[in-house]
């Protein structure tokens, strides 16, 4: 028998498991360590890269501790202007807004492409 973890554990939370666990770092001010359960580089890299753009965020980095563990750990430090948790929440909603724009732009451009192509085939 294989001892690989069941595949559904890559994305389904265990019963009672939290999606995100937050712990404030006691040694460094305004720093928190987040554990994102059942998430991977898709979200880890996305959040980290976007947190770097905020001027209040002084530190943001993530790690996937082990390739078989379906979680990543995100460490966020701020200058005190915003709490680390607020920074992550703001980051998430900013990305959602950006994705909305991407979606609208894609819909628009697809329509334009279809019109352009329709015009071409009529011309021929």
């Amino acid at each position: 028998m294989s001892n690989a973890p069941p595949r559904h554990e890559l994305f389904l939370l265990d019963e009672g498991q939290d999606k995100v666990e937050v712990k404030m770092d006691t040694r460094v001010p305004n720093t928190a360590v987040f554990t994102f359960n059942r998430e991977d580089h898709t979200l880890g890299n996305l959040l980290t890269a976007h947190l770097h753009k905020y001027k209040d965020v002084t530190f943001a980095a993530y790690k996937v501790e082990h390739p078989l563990k379906p979680l990543f750990i995100l460490r966020v430090g701020t200058d005190g202007g915003i709490s680390p948790k607020d920074a992550v929440v703001r980051c998430c909603s900013d990305i959602i807004t950006t994705l909305d724009k991407v979606s609208r732009e894609f819909t628009k451009e697809m329509e334009l492409f279809k019109i352009a192509r329709g015009g071409e085939s009529n011309g021929v």
């Binding site: 973890p5 554990e9 078989l68």
Partner: peptide, 18 residues
């Protein structure tokens, strides 16, 4: 904030899944 920070292994609590 949630205080019980504890990294879990993927196997934890999932064994009865089958």
């Amino acid at each position: 904030p949630v205080d019980d920070y504890q990294p879990r292994s993927p196997g934890a609590g999932g064994d009865d899944y089958g």
